[in-house]
Design a protein around this nucleic acid. Structure first.
Lengths: 294, 294
DNA sequence: TATTGCATTTTATAATTATAATATGTAATT
DNA sequence: AATTACATATTATAATTATAAAATGCAATA
């Protein structure tokens, strides 16, 4: 009857933290440091650490705190035995998107209607609806009810989105503040290479989509301008909903990854204008090939 | 104890509708038509019409509905006698922005803290906070409380915003779908001319700011791409908060309006590339001159 | 046939809790 | 000096209403 806890989220955060910092068995995990890192108080961090102790991932020592019980590499395999997984998005959110894309929901719907349909409490429904409104594909009507915008379902919006992405990304790269981040480039190169050398046949659709988005967002982040980055992130969230419904043409992926690598090459060679132009063509090319169910 | 009504809003909408359609005394106001126009049911429209009847703006005829009691031109003067005014934004929203800009609010605040400080109910506070989160200058923390982003207060963000606007607007104008809207151009020309010929001394700061924003949004709307338009609207909402705190240098306005008119001239002469380049310079020029209190 | 007027159903809100979770101050420990 | 352990204070949520408002069906009317 009270709110749900953030500590499962914190548990997942700690695991991720340990992994990305490649920590070794025996290293100390100071409570306040973790709390600051995740922007919460020590309370939920302690709850999370207690949980991790029962999972055998950390060890508690009286008056000294918690210490990692195994190397970061082993943590990953130990992880799935417990159930802590961040549920960063309510499945309800996706169901609404899917049902709208499948034509199962009218353009106008009332809150009570949705509550009955999905059998959820109003508070939970409203959370999803607010998130959706923030993303701009539904809006609250002045009286009762909510309305879907055409953002998700119209061919025209779909194409406008590609134009917007192509322009924003190209221009971001041309900004005087653009500064390639060596470390990020190295990581991106590794991911794209793995994807091109076989990953395109074995990775899940979600993994492929995520890798692609992260590549593009990494490039825009190099512009050091948060408005460009926010704009791209915002439109990528939308894309995720729409393109999940498009069958991935895996045969195109080697070409896509090699283009990604080519962009990295051009930037690193200081040929920024060429890179930006190529990036533009790369994005617009993708729009011409895919066809959404509309 | 129940929700507040939308009918005052509808009342204002009807007045605006009558005005922009330049309706004459005696014209019929069909209930369903108004309901459709404002996306509500007949119920709040009827409530609004009843209100307008008591104000003497419309007349009811039994079984025939409501009819305008005076020409649209007269409606405007009759309007202020009643109290119906749309309150499209909760003043609380602005108070939060002001208090943050004035340094009266810490970077982190709890909901209860804000409720006590402003003496408002949680529901009302949350509405403003959600709106603010949507605009991106505050965010909910994972545990308790909310945090301000630096969007409002940092010089760097301020400058990034100008770069973003300049790029988006220029690129919007260069899109193949860009199509100047004659009617809108005519209106914009009238407004900018009025502002340049004396309005800059007498108009209120809010009016000047609104005219400026509408000019730029009108230009971007001609691109026929909603993503570009949304991006500009989004950043203009932010600008409104920040720039209200900057003293307007009215001596610059004649120059600004003449630049606006010059842009319209170039577009109408078909010199789009020049217009876009000039627009870019125009926006970046403004950023160099103004200095926000940061 | 389109629209109103009215009665009825449906909807969403604002206020009010109980309660679990988060935040935090401080003495004890290393 | 930094950190933990624990006690206490503070915070936000989820559930539950009562109620006004919005939506809607339909007979009456123009």
């Amino acid at each position: 009857m009270a709110r749900q806890s953030v500590s499962p989220q914190i548990t997942a955060n700690i695991l991720e933290f340990v992994k990305t910092n490649e920590m070794r068995a025996g290293e100390h995990l100071p409570c306040q440091m973790l709390a600051d890192a995740f922007r919460v108080s020590r309370a939920p961090v302690n709850a999370a650490l207690k949980k991790l102790e029962t999972m055998g991932i950390v060890r508690a020592e009286p008056n000294r705190g918690y210490f990692l019980a195994m190397d970061a590499a082993k943590v990953e395999t130990a992880k799935p035995e417990g159930e802590p997984q961040r549920e960063e998005e309510d499945p309800l959110y996706f169901r609404i998107a899917e049902d709208r894309l499948a034509g199962k929901l009218d353009e106008r719907v009332s809150e009570n209607e949705l509550m009955r349909l999905y059998d959820v409490a109003r508070s939970r429904l409203l959370k999803s609806l607010h998130r959706i409104a923030e993303e701009g594909w539904m809006e609250r009507l002045p009286g009762n009810g909510w309305a879907f915008r055409e953002t998700l379902t119209s061919r025209k919006s779909y194409e406008e989105g590609y134009v917007f992405r192509a322009v924003i990304e190209q221009q971001a790269m041309l900004l005087p503040t653009f500064q390639p981040n060596e470390e990020e480039f190295r990581k991106a190169r590794a991911v794209q290479t793995a994807l091109g050398e076989g990953g395109y046949e074995t990775w899940s659709r979600a993994e492929i989509f995520k890798a692609n988005n992260e590549f593009h967002e990494m490039l825009v982040a190099c512009s050091q301008n948060d408005f460009f980055l926010d704009a791209i992130k915002r439109i990528n969230r939308l894309r995720r909903l729409i393109e999940y419904h498009i069958t991935i043409d895996r045969s195109r992926l080697p070409r896509q990854t090699s283009e990604h690598l080519h962009i990295l090459d051009l930037v690193e060679a200081g040929r920024r204008t060429e890179a930006a132009a190529f990036l533009y063509t790369h994005i617009m090319g993708a729009s011409r090939i895919k066809t959404p169910r509309v």
